[in-house]
Design a protein around this nucleic acid. Sequence first.
DNA 1: CCTTAAACTAAACGAACGTTTAGTTATTTT
DNA 2: AAAATAACTAAACGTTCGTTTAGTTTAAGG
Lengths: 187, 187
Amino acid sequence: MARQKKYSEEEVVEKAMNLFWKNGFESTSMQMLEKEMGINKFSIYSSFGSKNGLFIECLNSYKIELNRLMDKLRATENGAADIKQYFYDFLEFSKGSDLGKGCLVTNTSNEIDIYTDEKITEVLINSTNDVKQLFASSLRKELEKDELIIEQQADYLLLAMFGLSSASRLFTKTQLHNYIENTFKNI
Amino acid sequence: MARQKKYSEEEVVEKAMNLFWKNGFESTSMQMLEKEMGINKFSIYSSFGSKNGLFIECLNSYKIELNRLMDKLRATENGAADIKQYFYDFLEFSKGSDLGKGCLVTNTSNEIDIYTDEKITEVLINSTNDVKQLFASSLRKELEKDELIIEQQADYLLLAMFGLSSASRLFTKTQLHNYIENTFKNI
DNA sequence: CCTTAAACTAAACGAACGTTTAGTTATTTT
DNA sequence: AAAATAACTAAACGTTCGTTTAGTTTAAGG
């Protein structure tokens, strides 16, 4: 062994993640990443291999943060009301300095031409499935209903969450809250 | 006067529009546009000034097409049921070869860093307002209710439409139809 | 203490981007 | 028919992108 790294990979990934979250994948250049992460291009490449490789680490870092929100929902047993709270929690979680930052997974799904990068696509699909399963199991606790209804309501709320996170980058807090309230009127 | 143009600007704009619609603004290169529009870069620049200038023409061309859908809704007087039909009509309108293409306005809102290009932002905002006003006036015909309720329901449906068009690029027809049905249960 | 190897800096890489320019062709008008 | 002018072709422009490479510094192991 020789020299030790001056930086923590975990720390620089989190910085990169926040930059990707705010600006998107394509609009975030290696130059911006160098500055934000505080390390040289060479160090980025030696630690993560490529911009894609770094981005995948960022997606994983994001999922860990998002999982703290999901754990809160997992811990409760009141069905739809808790999912609604999850929607509000998400808005708080994704708050930017002015408009919201959306969800890194959703933003990426909107940006990336699907199936362009196999590994990234896989993370996105898995993450989406996780959220749907979380909604389904939350609904199951409340409803004791036909699995078909559970499936449909979970899918509905999945798309609503997808829409909300996309919309959070453009619409006002009032509009977003109004959207949540109306979404849960009939659940 | 000297030579006449070999191409119709209207025709090449529509071809460009479809390319932007499918691939997004950034991912559509001048090289791709040359090929798809069947004219040289020079001709594109002499007709439209810049990539942004061409794109704005494409947004206008898109709005003309979208207005045909909106006219159908304008012509009816049955409130929410017709708006629901508009949602289904939109899915048909935005159908791609495999997954949907979404809405050019929504796709652009998701892609562009808001307020980066003033002119583009203006078109996006105006277009969004138009849709909201269309929903509001449709609801007004049915409801005879408090303007506040109209406003809230129109905003709710606006965000639902925004979410649907974003989701249409990623989710299945079944999921999208299920989303529409559940959305209108709340109206 | 000296060798060695990994982490560092900084510069350059080729490719692709949007845009411009120089030079040619074609058609209208005088 | 000649002159004029706009549409055309094709090549090159300067930037920026992600990535790589050459050369230097640092510190651990024998």
